[in-house]
């Protein structure tokens, strides 16, 4: 019985690959899945929203690339410790929610004295948080020095399709909020009222966090 050479070679090739495949099956088999997107549902309670918001800030939002919580000394970007207290009085006529919303949708509209503008528009790529995610982030920011008042039903004046209708009644539309949604306005165009109050250049060359 003589087996043709080509058949033997084929058998050898198949046996060799088969053996290595077998070795591949012997080692632990584990599938690694990408980290799950934070699930957001419309019926979250305020504390749940804050928790989710914190996760978004750590992950997708990339907030802690620049911002810190509880850091002292020279800073490049504002520290967020107790930020809710300051947010309530930062811009006259703005509630803390208004202020947070403006900071996120139009970061350059108001610059904290002593800092340079540098924050990207958060609801656009590459970060691209959705309106719901931003609500969760605001919910968390409010817990830093205050209590969460936003709900998942809160309509922010900047939201796509939202015409400044404060459905939940917690947010009054800002005096001259943009009406066309974030797609129509650019972050570089601040609301007229704020223009006068916006510092042209940082006064302090060695910036420190405002307290």
């Amino acid at each position: 019985m003589k087996v043709p050479v080509s058949l033997r070679i084929a058998a050898l090739a198949v046996a060799t690959t088969g053996f290595y495949t077998y070795v591949g099956q012997l080692v632990p088999q584990k599938e690694v899945h990408p980290p799950a997107e934070v699930a957001i549902s419309k019926d979250m309670k305020p504390d749940e929203m804050a928790k989710v918001g914190r996760e978004i800030m750590e992950g997708k939002g990339l907030c802690f690339t620049c911002h810190t919580i509880g850091k002292k000394g020279p800073l490049r970007f504002p520290d967020l410790e107790g930020v809710d207290v300051r947010a309530k009085s930062r811009v006259p006529g703005f509630s803390d929610v208004d202020y947070f919303a403006q900071s996120i949708y139009q970061p350059s509209a108001f610059i904290v004295p002593g800092f340079n503008p540098g924050m990207p528009v958060i609801n656009k790529p590459p970060i691209g948080l959705t309106d719901d995610e931003i609500l969760a982030v605001i919910a968390y920011l409010q817990t830093l020095g205050g209590k969460t008042t936003v709900t998942m039903q809160t309509k922010l004046p900047y939201q796509a399709g939202g015409n400044g209708q404060a459905a939940a009644g917690t947010v009054a539309p800002p005096p001259a909020g943009p009406t066309g949604g974030p797609a129509a306005t650019t972050a570089a165009a601040p609301a007229p009222q704020n223009a006068g109050k916006k510092p042209e250049t940082p006064q302090n060359p060695n910036p420190s966090p405002p307290q």
Partner: peptide, 20 residues
């Protein structure tokens, strides 16, 4: 028998007691 990675790669950062 199950092979588990005893010392897996740690994440870059963690948050303990709300402190990153």
């Amino acid at each position: 028998a199950f092979g588990r990675t005893i010392h897996p790669a740690p994440p870059d950062s963690i948050t303990v007691h709300d402190k990153p």
